[in-house]
Amino acid sequence: MTAFWILSPVMVLAALGILFVRKAVHAALLLAVVMMSLSVLYLVLEAPFLFAVQVIVYTGAILMLFLFVVMLVGVDASDSSVETIRGQRLAATLVGLALGAVLVLAVGQVSLGAVTGMGAANADGNVEGIAALLFTRYVFAFEAIAALLITAALGAMVLAHRERLTPKQTQGEMAAQRMRDYAESGKHPGPLPAPGVYARHNAVDTPALLPDGSISELSVSRVMQARGVVRSAPALADDIDPIARQLGVPDQDPARAPETSGKSGAVTDTEEDRA
């Protein structure tokens, strides 16, 4: 029972956490906690096969599937805390509390009697015992569940599949389109500018600087702009001075200093080389 008493508060807390965390990723991680704890309880309850299944299939596969979908849908997609259905939260809480109280009281009242234990049942090994049941008494249910699983897989394929309504654009067509756009609206036909590369920093979240020192908006992803994680190039430049001082590099005349970008000064004098 030691494991139970240690794990059960963890599970309840984790489960309650699912109710209150705002991000789906956190909920998934909390669910993983609950499931892993459950697998340990299965082991305690003399169900080693289910322990393995719980860890491998449930936590390892199903929950990971959840995480995939969370990533697809958007990690940052979080619930707003405003309830849209009037009275839903209060009613749900009341009904939930009542149900929980009734269930807990009801099963708490029941005296289960002496525990038989799995000794006899698991005499030939737990996996062999379950296999024997699955392929004898529950063989039809097993077949049916297999059919269900295949059907579900097919269903998921059908649901996730998107029919292509127009023929795929070839590379040639795309190039032609690009030139057409340039001719019609002056849209730049080449690739977008690369993000900024600095002496100490080379990352997609840093915008490139144009010759006049202003920022090129096109050089960073729109998503990052929307999230507000784009770094400011002048701020990075400010960081350089204390480091240079630290290293004992004399102040450089800004006029002599190489351009922050451009091929001319890119290879010759980098921070890494100096370090």
């Binding site: 059960s8 309850l45 269930l103 708490g108």
Partner: peptide, 14 residues
């Protein structure tokens, strides 16, 4: 084994 059942009920309700 009652605590297990109670835990089960609690998790279900949550």
């Amino acid at each position: 084994l009652t605590p297990y059942i109670v835990l089960s009920a609690i998790l279900f309700t949550i």
